[in-house]
Amino acid sequence: MENFFNEIAELLEVDSVTGNEALNSFKCWDSLTILSIIAHADDNYGITLTAAEVNNAKTVNGLKDLFVAKKA
């Protein structure tokens, strides 16, 4: 998970993230970006996420927590 913030920054189309940002504050936040996060989780971490779970994560840190919880 050490590259998580870099990977998510790329999907969110920004140079970097700190973790505190609200997901819906990003310009690119839409259904396709949510799909990208679900596909990325599946491809790179072998975890299954739903669109509702990603939306409910609220922040980048929340998203990281979700990945960690699913991976456990």
């Binding site: 790329e10 999907l11 189309e13 396709l32 970006t33 799909l35 990208s36 996060i37 679900i38 596909a39 990325h40 491809d43 790179n44």
Partner: peptide, 11 residues
């Protein structure tokens, strides 16, 4: 299923 920006070449 993957949008272009998360497309994984290996997959």
């Amino acid at each position: 299923i993957s949008p272009l920006k998360s497309l994984n070449e290996k997959t």
